[in-house]
Amino acid sequence: MSGMSKIVKTISSITFPFVTIYGLYVIAHGHLTPGGGFQGGAVVASGCAMILVAYGSVWTMGKIKEKHLSVLESFGAIGFIGLAFLGLIFGTMFFKNFLVGNDFLFGEIGKGLSNISTAGALPLMNFAVGLKVIAGLFGIVLVMAYTTKAKGGKIE
């Protein structure tokens, strides 16, 4: 898919940081406000798909390969399952929230929407699932756009 006109490229370049920042905010505040890893990852992947449509798949594949996205997605999955197994090791059972209650990272018990250092292992699981969803959804769209050729019709 070749790129679109200069107006579309400029507008998407201006809009892309705001979309990405909003998606990362949704991921990071997943235990306080509505949203979470899946929703924020979907927002960030939507911004990346906008860049893909504006600049073309060949340019985007020159920036990031699908091997790197595959590695990122595997890191997210390993982090998620590893946190679940750490609950089995340090706590009592699988998916035990082992960080809450002690004075370590994210250890406090929240009473109110302003304290981000709460909820134990939930923010870390949000980060892992967010990384996994970003890499997975954007990788699917990127591979499909790069490997299929335009056949008939007027679309580039």
Binding site: M1, A49, M144, K151, G152
Partner: peptide, 20 residues
């Protein structure tokens, strides 16, 4: 995020590879 953006992108890619 998923329904309005990514599904449309995948559908447009699939239409581009076939007929309009």
């Amino acid at each position: 995020g998923i329904g309005a953006c990514l599904t449309t992108a995948i559908l447009v890619i699939a239409i581009r590879a076939t007929r309009r």
